[in-house]
Design a protein around this nucleic acid. Structure first.
Length: 595
RNA sequence: GGUCCGGUAGCUCAGUUGGAUAGAGCAGCAGCCUUCUAAGCUGCGGGUCAGGCGUUCGAAUCGCCUCCGGAUCACCA
């Protein structure tokens, strides 16, 4: 990297001039701000060196600049503003960069390594609840982070953990049994996950009216809850399930099967996938074994009522329950089992959990328990904690019907993309299948970009009343830029073989801005992966597209007379297109050849 | 109350390990299609970076305090 070259050359220069070897960390090299781009491309901040040089900032910068010019052939000239040494990188360096990479279809992407895998868990749905906007954020983040890690050279395994058992699942089963009239996805035409979700809601409704009736007959809240026959039946059903009762298991399998079919449809549309799917019904028993192990090691303790706990007061946390008094497992028990299973399955380098920030405490505890149990891999558990998606009136609540359904939202985005595209009327010659494909790409591109451009750890706002934009800092803007480049490239087939880039004249500022940005793509991939932050990639791509558009507007490409310039611009265009395509793919966003 | 995370333009958001005059988009106003795709480009207006104190040559960024918002502290998941 040129930044590293500059940095180490500066260290040598300082050593030579002032006789002091400074740590490279003290030297800040950054892209020159637009106001001084006439002086250089990268800037060295010399303020930290004043104590050593004991000269004015300008004088210090000049001395270092002179020496840099001598020892670093990539530096062509320099300028000084206050304590900033602005270095102009030689034209030949950029020419060589473009020439080397313009046709590299995987520029900036590292080949996947075969080392120990990074296991990324995301999605993790509850089979009672159809996917909503919050899940969309989770899925997009998880998918994108996994792709970014791959692109930075990691061996990545994407896994999903399905929350398929427990009292809540019994509730929807019970409601269906009591008043389902044998409805199926086929008989109703409903998506399986929606059908089951409806029964979950129905249970809640029936339960509430039962409570109402009990309270009307003079019972207190607690008494009513205790007397509820519905809740009693749900508990009985859970016991039957744990006892492997055939009829219960069969209903459970049938209804979960409907849900999985429904989820698959949504996952496919979202474009996310998994290498392995775990089910809590298959991990909770292992969790119980781990609790047993903890008891034997004296790490956990049993209360008089038979419940099992861990005391984390020394770590500043509370006592935490690991097994109920009736011996059944809780959330934490299952997650212990799941983590162990994953460690057994993959011998992973690290375990990444994409889970909302409401569970920060849970993951602190999970990691701590596993560490105390002596699992060395527990040190490499990382909770990628992301913020909630809020509506103008606050958090989404399934109970209050304020959730934004994932399928509905995607339908809406695609419909808007269609309206918009038809109004613009540029693709009248596409057949209907191609057109539908374009609407899908653009609609989903807008949605995905809207979500991924925000820093994961921050809460974000979604206002259903204002539709997601298609202009400005949006997915479609970047897709449009791609389609625009491809249009130029289609018309330039012959010129593209001309791969030699040798300019007689200077590089235009718009060209060098763009090249500079392209040059930074590989580092951006690494940065985004290291920070688990797709938003870094999203914002980079927006800047790149914006720079391309100003470049496109100010300079002609195909009509440029000078063949060397034409060739350079075409090659820059081609490289920009592949960076956009590859970068967007890391966000799970497709780009159209035309739009 | 304890712990954690936020607070940047009217709105939605960027802002790398502290670096130059804090940036985009939307909304508003004014321009640009007989010329490679106008989902674009150019310009204008818009800021006490919640507030205060401190560290530093230099603070939106680091530390302390205060205010505001959110999450969490369940024999729910």
């Amino acid at each position: 990297m040129i930044v590293d070259l500059i940095s180490s050359a500066a260290v040598n220069a300082v050593t030579k001039i002032f006789g002091v070897k400074v740590p490279p960390a003290q030297l800040v090299v950054q892209r020159t701000i637009p106001a001084f781009r006439n002086q250089g491309d990268y800037s060295l901040v010399v303020f930290p060196l004043l104590k050593i040089s004991r000269k004015s900032p300008e004088e210090t910068a000049r001395l270092i600049g002179d020496e840099m010019l001598r020892i670093l052939p990539q530096v062509e000239s320099f300028g000084v503003v206050k304590g900033y040494l602005n270095l102009r990188i030689a034209k030949s360096f950029w020419e060589a960069f473009v020439e080397e990479n313009f046709s590299d279809a995987v520029f900036g992407l590292s080949p996947v390594q075969s080392g120990d895998p990074v296991v990324v868990e995301y999605s993790s749905p509850n089979t009672n609840k159809p996917l909503h906007l919050g899940h969309i954020r989770n899925n997009l983040l998880g998918y994108s982070v996994a792709e970014l890690l791959k692109a930075s050279g990691k061996n990545v395994k994407k896994v999903n953990l399905v929350n398929d058992r427990g009292i809540h699942i019994c509730k929807s089963m019970l409601a269906w049994k009591l008043s389902g009239k044998n409805e199926t996805p086929e008989s109703t035409g409903k998506k399986g996950d929606k059908l089951v979700g409806d029964y979950y809601v129905l249970f809640d409704k029936l339960y509430k009216s039962e409570l109402q009736a009990l309270k009307a007959s003079g019972k207190t809240d607690d008494e009513a809850a205790g007397a509820s026959t519905l809740m009693l039946q749900a508990r009985e059903m859970l016991l039957k399930w744990e006892a492997r009762d055939e009829e219960t298991l069969s209903l459970w399998q049938t209804m979960n099967g409907w849900v999985y079919e429904g989820f698959d449809v949504t996952y496919r549309r979202l474009g996310v996938d998994f290498d392995k799917i775990y089910y809590e019904s298959q991990t909770y028993l292992l969790g119980k074994e781990i609790v047993e192990e903890g008891l034997q090691k004296g790490l956990l303790f049993r209360k008089e009522d038979n419940s099992v706990w861990i005391d984390l007061a020394a770590e500043g946390l509370d006592e935490k329950l690991l097994l109920r008094s009736d011996g059944t497992s809780v959330y934490m028990t299952q997650d212990l089992g799941t983590a162990q299973l994953r460690a057994n399955d993959f011998a992973p380098e690290s375990l990444v959990y994409v889970v909302g920030n409401e569970q920060n405490y849970h993951f602190d505890v999970l990691k701590l328990i596993l560490q105390k149990l002596g699992r060395p891999w527990a040190d490499h558990i990382y909770h990628l904690s992301y913020g909630m998606v809020e509506l103008p009136e606050g958090k989404m609540k399934s109970r209050e019907g304020t959730v934004v359904d994932a399928d509905d939202l995607m339908d809406g985005m695609i419909a808007t993309a269609r309206t918009m595209t038809e109004e613009l009327g540029k693709i009248a010659d596409l057949d209907s299948a191609e057109a539908m494909e374009l609407y899908r790409m653009v609609g989903l591109g807008a949605l995905k970009y809207f979500i991924l451009k925000v820093d994961p750890k921050k809460n974000m706002l979604f206002n259903p009343a204002e539709s997601i934009d298609f202009n400005g800092n949006t997915g479609p803007f970047i897709q449009y830029t791609y389609a625009r480049i491809k249009s130029v490239l289609r018309k330039a087939v012959l010129d593209l073989n001309d791969s030699k880039v040798q300019l007689v004249s200077d590089i235009h500022p718009k060209e060098s801005d763009l090249i500079l940005s392209l040059y930074e793509f590989p580092a951006t991939v690494k940065q985004a992966a290291a920070d688990y932050s797709p938003s870094i990639m999203a914002n980079y791509l927006f800047e790149l597209a914006r720079e391309y558009n100003t470049f496109y507007h100010e300079l002609s490409i195909l009509k440029e007379e000078d063949p060397a310039k034409r060739s350079l611009r075409l090659n820059i265009s081609r490289l920009t297109s592949s960076v956009i395509k590859n970068g967007m793919a890391l966000l799970g966003i497709e780009v159209p050849e035309r739009m």
